[in-house]
């Protein structure tokens, strides 16, 4: 397995993500400069957290035109591998049209930085297969624009297709419709989530449950390629 973490101007979680993949899971991992357009080497592309292009205009609005992000569409349609967007990465993937919906400013009028409880709604995906159905996990969130929003019809479609992978439990920290915290696309090879699994991968930082998202992907890669 080989992974790439895209580095955009203003990304700031790329080293943390690389550390999880390379140091904890022994995956060959490259930091991929945003001007690169060759994704053919990779089984997993991560769009990391941060404030790409300063989040100017809207979070992800300018980042979606970065060369490395522009070529993600073909990568996804051709099913070359998996794409994981964390926090700002999720915002970028929605702006790029690789995931439905949009992330609006938090309803609570503030930047939210805390640990939240989440329910794993669908464990039948490459990203979540190492979780028990309806398992509750705790991950940190840190964002100002994390309120998932779409039309009622679009939300109904997400539910019908079981594309909602994570929902907030007990407390909805940003006012997301349906308490949605993470979704996948129809092809189930793109996953975007506002919480940070890379910040709860070791027991020093919590339960370590975040690691299982990455382990799920390693297992999926082995299942495909042996």
């Amino acid at each position: 397995m080989r992974a790439a973490v895209i580095v955009l101007p203003g990304s700031n979680r790329e080293q943390d993500t690389k550390y999880i993949l390379r140091d904890l899971l022994n995956i060959e991992t490259d930091l991929l400069w945003y001007k690169e357009t060759n994704l053919s080497l990779y089984d997993l592309i991560v769009v990391p957290g941060g404030f790409a292009y300063g989040d100017y205009l809207r979070a992800g609005a300018i980042a979606r035109f970065a060369p490395a992000v522009q070529v993600l569409g073909d990568y996804v349609v051709a099913k070359k591998g998996w794409v994981l967007g964390i926090c700002n990465g999720f915002q970028i993937l929605t702006e790029a049209g690789l995931l439905p919906g949009a992330l609006a400013r938090n309803e609570q009028k503030k930047f939210v930085c805390k640990r939240v409880k989440l329910r794993v709604e669908n464990t039948e995906t490459a990203f979540t297969q190492f979780f028990e159905p309806n398992e509750i996990v705790e991950l940190p969130v840190a964002h100002a624009e994390g309120r998932y929003f779409d039309t009622p019809e679009a939300i109904a479609k997400l539910k019908r297709n079981q594309q909602i992978l994570l929902t907030y439990v007990d407390e909805n920290p940003n006012g997301s419709v349906g308490a949605i915290a993470g979704i996948t696309n129809e092809l189930r090879n793109v996953f975007g989530l506002m919480p940070h699994p890379e910040h709860n991968c070791e027991t020093l930082l919590g339960s370590g449950a975040g690691l299982r998202f990455f382990q799920s992907l390693v297992h999926s890669r082995e299942a495909v390629h042996g």
Binding site: L57, A61, I62, G101, A102, A104, F149, D150, T151
Partner: peptide
């Protein structure tokens, strides 16, 4: 193309 997001 760029300036607005029609969803929000």
């Amino acid at each position: 193309q760029l300036l607005i997001n029609p969803i929000i």
